[in-house]
């Protein structure tokens, strides 16, 4: 296997380190599940998600433009650099947008872009927070109605919430693996460096490796931002995020779990009639929509000239 695939492994590692927070941040930061167990669950279910439902994303990302070993490597490095810079700028970053930006840069240089794939991807980006808002608005009152019918008492409610948060974390990890594995190895698959199974396996393992080795800080930071909500709202926001991301995995478009999570939180705000997310965060997401792919594109063009 060509060592250039290490660029993808590195990207997968940083994706796992960053995005684990979106699925298990609440449960870990509130000490409902310990960090080690959470990361093991993430690693397992990300891999399962990648292997079982990650294939459609590989086709989409691979379809945007032609790839060689070299371009695949450059795209991975461009995406990794973009993610790093956006993280420094504290803008919620989408690895998917960084990868697509990198692919576009290469496509521009090769004067070959399959626009039907590109449009599909962009529509799904916009649809990600909107989808999560939609699910959050639907799920919050309907699950609340069902729970009210149960006449639970205090401790049962607590136990059920803990169970649901862990369960949605597992589902979120599965959806993350299914959806985001294409970001990691999609271009290498297109370049013919790996077959489909290898692409899914390497992608899933590298995301899991990122979760296992370097996700603690982001997980605690993101979790603490979310947990001031009540446990039920935290559960609904992660569930809405997971369902949205899972649907896009089935459609075959890698999207941002961070943006889906913000969508889920905004939806709860709409149901409750309060503002759960500051205007500043929303502006940052919108800036990220343009800046992330632009940076990814700029890096891949620049790196193509340099190497």
């Amino acid at each position: 296997m060509d060592p250039k695939i290490l660029g993808g492994v590195f990207l997968g590692w940083s994706l796992g380190a960053n995005d684990s927070a979106n699925v298990f941040g609440t449960a870990v930061s509130s000490f409902m599940v310990n960090y080690r167990l959470a990361t093991i669950l993430i690693a397992i279910f990300v891999l399962i998600g990648a292997l079982l439902e990650g294939a459609p994303g590989l086709e989409t990302l691979g379809g945007i433009t032609e790839q060689s070993f070299n371009t695949a490597f450059l795209i991975s490095i461009s995406a990794a650099l973009t993610v790093t810079i956006m993280t420094i700028l504290k803008i919620p970053v989408s690895t998917s947008q960084a990868v697509v930006g990198g692919i576009l840069g290469i496509g521009i240089l090769q004067k070959h872009i399959e626009f039907q794939y590109l449009y599909k991807v962009i529509i799904c980006w916009i649809g990600t927070p909107i989808g999560a808002i939609f699910f959050s608005i639907i799920l919050y009152p309907s699950i609340a109605f069902f729970l009210r019918k149960l006449h639970m008492h205090f401790l049962t409610y607590d136990r059920m919430m803990r169970f649901l948060l862990i369960l949605t974390g597992i589902y979120g990890a599965y959806a993350l693996g299914a959806n985001n594995v294409a970001n990691v190895t999609g271009v290498f698959y297109k370049a013919g460096m790996v077959n489909k199974f290898e692409a899914l396996l390497i992608g899933g393992l590298s995301i899991g490796f990122g979760a296992l080795t370097y996700s603690r800080n982001v997980m605690i930071t993101v979790g603490r931002k979310i947990i001031p909500m009540d446990a039920f709202s935290a559960f609904i926001s992660v569930l809405s995020e997971a369902i949205t991301v899972h649907i896009y995995a089935i459609i075959g478009v890698p999207v941002s779990t961070s943006q889906a999570l913000v969508g889920g939180v905004v939806g709860i705000g709409i149901v409750k009639g309060i503002r759960m997310v500051s205007g500043k965060t929303i502006i940052k997401i919108v800036i990220g929509w343009f800046l992330t792919p632009a940076l990814g594109m700029a890096f891949s063009i620049l790196l193509s000239y340099l190497f």
């Binding site: 509130s30 000490f31 409902m32 205090f154 409610y157 607590d158 919430m161 803990r162 009540d230 446990a231």
Partner: peptide
């Protein structure tokens, strides 16, 4: 006991 901190605080 492992509890949601909010629940623990409430009790």
């Amino acid at each position: 006991k492992s509890m949601i901190p909010e629940s623990r605080g409430d009790i």
